[in-house]
């Protein structure tokens, strides 16, 4: 599927109800994030913090979570081998019909040279999560310590409001749990047991997925997000969700 189309067709609570003026402002931010106007404005990349902070060190002090979990995709390395998807299914008991992560494909037969690109997606663990706002029972919530968007399945009434609110199509209804299921950065299956990496990142043979603590200047995610040599972007910045999943190439 063409993911441009894919995302265009996804409805979010913000889209369609944002005044043109505001939307234009958001788009400007989008341009900055994609690196077109990176100089001096790269701080905006970090979807978290108040604007106007001067240096990266100051910035990291301002991260609202510790550890502030984040994932970076070096997207041009993705070959859709789907080992990540398989690893996720096994680790988190994701059924055949469901997904916590998936790979989108874009084919452009008019493109020069390479005509195919893959793009992995998962829950963006937004700082301003539309799904959490949409949930009537607080079954989905932002973890106060790690920033992971988690599910308290026993509270879920299966209304699927969060599914339609999510700009990233990161949620599905799990028939067995009778609740919405989603990526929790392997919190339940791995991180809470002392492991440091997610199953998908560990399974990736091409080094596409890099998982870590964005508030730790020694982490790889920090180093990629806080550099200026390569463009770093987020998906759908215009929704204002302030995602913690970043994309880059190389």
């Amino acid at each position: 599927m063409n993911w441009k189309e894919f995302f265009k067709n996804l409805k979010t609570e913000e889209q369609g109800c944002v005044p043109d003026e505001t939307r234009r402002e958001f788009l400007k931010i989008g341009l900055i994030i994609t690196g077109v106007a990176a100089g001096g404005s790269l701080l905006n990349v970090v979807s978290v913090v108040a604007e106007g902070l001067a240096t990266s060190e100051e910035l990291s002090k301002e991260y609202p979570y510790k550890p502030h979990y984040s994932m970076v995709f070096r997207v041009d390395r993705c070959i859709d081998c789907e080992r990540c998807v398989e690893a996720c299914r096994q680790t988190n008991n994701v059924p055949e019909y469901g997904w916590r992560t998936k790979i989108l494909e874009r084919v452009d037969t008019k493109a020069v040279d390479q005509q195919r690109q893959f793009m992995p997606i998962l829950c963006n663990h937004c700082n301003n999560p539309p799904c959490v706002r949409a949930c009537p029972t607080q079954a989905t919530y932002k973890d106060k310590q790690t920033g992971i968007v988690k599910m308290a399945s026993y509270k879920c009434i299966g209304c699927k409001s969060c599914m339609s609110a999510c700009p990233y199509d990161a949620r599905y209804f799990n028939e067995e749990k009778r609740a919405i299921d989603k990526c929790d950065f392997c919190w339940e299956s791995r991180l809470s047991k002392g492991m440091k990496n997610t199953a998908c990142a560990e399974a990736c043979p091409a080094g596409v997925r890099i998982f870590g603590d964005l508030s730790d200047p020694n982490s790889e995610v920090y180093k990629i997000v806080h550099q200026m040599g390569k463009a770093v972007w987020v998906l759908k910045p215009e929704t204002g969700a302030k995602p913690n999943v970043f994309y880059t190439i190389g």
Binding site: D76, R77, C78, I79, D80, C81, E82, I103, E105, D113, Q114, Q115, R116, Q117, F118, A206
Partner: peptide, 12 residues
């Protein structure tokens, strides 16, 4: 380079 030229993936 150009990984997805030969790698058509599971979808391919």
């Amino acid at each position: 380079t150009k990984c997805a030229t030969c790698h058509v993936g599971v979808k391919g």
